[in-house]
């Protein structure tokens, strides 16, 4: 099960996706204790943010939808919360957000002293003004500019997290690779979508629209990972609707080296990581593969 991602050793390929339970060191420890190969913190901006009003997270038949709005305690809070991360028994990935390239750089420099194994840069949130797709960060040009600025300021591997809503995700991935990204995380939430309560005659999310994740996102995520694999050489962390070991195998066949799991925690609980790993092992053994590496990208052959 051991997986190597940009030189980082993971005891298995499952990674906690950003924004789910990544609010504290003790929660990260708990997720690791439940089998995650690596974990990602909730995205951090320079200043603290309250995010959108409730309801912010809902689940509908077929998936989840959120408009949390990047609530986070900012760099100052992160410096208090994420101390001595090397005490934890798996690599921890930072997640850094901003509006302009220099905002990302400010956060990366602010977090410098902390023991993150890599830095993920989401350029893809669909429901927060000033960030992600609402700030046009999902174009190849902006992606290149922001990636380049961040890579220049850190020695750590930089993962660029892409949106499934981009017309040509392969081009965006290429721009990130060209600018020096070490890996691509594909994908962030889809949409935005909307759920209206017909009795109240109002959208349920206070922000009205939100990013779609979970099972509804999976086929789109698999296609995105497939497209990215065709376009770049750097490894891919495939995320979007992974609930079972078979979902993870599917992501790997599309081209993912590691798989992100977020919404799956709602469907199967925190120990989903352990369960998915044992399901992957079972499948791999039954189908005569010697290691996971052999699986990556086989759907392209």
């Amino acid at each position: 099960m051991e997986t190597k991602l940009c030189g980082i050793k993971l005891k298995n390929p499952t990674v906690l996706a950003s924004g789910i339970l990544g609010t504290s060191k003790s929660l990260l420890a708990r997720v690791i204790g439940n089998g995650a190969g690596a974990v990602t913190i909730k995205s951090i901006s320079f200043e603290a943010r309250e995010g959108h009003k409730n309801p912010t997270v809902i689940a509908f038949e077929g998936g989840m939808m959120n408009a949390v709005g990047y609530s986070n305690f900012g760099v100052a809070g992160a410096l208090k919360e994420f101390v001595n991360l090397n005490e934890l028994e798996a690599p921890i990935f930072a997640s850094v957000i901003g509006t302009e390239a220099e905002d990302f750089v400010k956060v990366v420099e602010g977090l410098k002293g902390l023991d993150f194994a890599a830095i993920e840069i989401p350029l893809s949130c669909p429901h927060t003004p000033g960030f992600g797709t609402l700030a046009g960060q999902d174009t190849p040009e902006k992606t290149f500019e922001i990636t380049k600025a961040v890579v220049k300021k850190t020695k750590k591997p930089v993962f660029i997290k892409l949106s499934p809503n981009t017309k040509n995700i392969g081009e965006v991935a290429k721009a990130a690779e060209k600018a020096g990204a070490s890996a691509i995380t594909a994908v962030n939430t889809m949409g935005p979508g909307m759920v209206i309560n017909i009795e109240a005659k109002k959208p349920v999310l206070d922000f009205k629209v939100g990013g779609v994740s979970g099972p509804a996102l999976k086929p789109v995520a698999v296609r995105c990972v497939y497209d990215v694999y065709e376009s770049v050489k750097i490894p891919i962390i495939g995320a979007g609707g992974v609930l079972t070991g078979k979902d993870a195998v599917e992501m790997m066949m599309a081209g993912a080296t590691a798989v992100g799991i977020g919404s799956g925690i709602y469907y199967r609980g925190i120990d989903i990581f352990r369960e998915v790993c044992s399901e992957i092992s079972e499948w791999v053994e039954k189908n005569g593969y010697k290691n996971l590496k052999e699986l990556v990208g086989v759907a392209h052959e």
Binding site: T23, L27, T56, S263, I265
Partner: peptide, 17 residues
């Protein structure tokens, strides 16, 4: 609380939701 069903991490105390 935000989600109320254990995914957002807002209500965390020492690793407990």
């Amino acid at each position: 609380m935000k989600c109320g069903f254990g995914v957002c991490g807002q209500c965390e105390v020492n690793g407990f939701r």
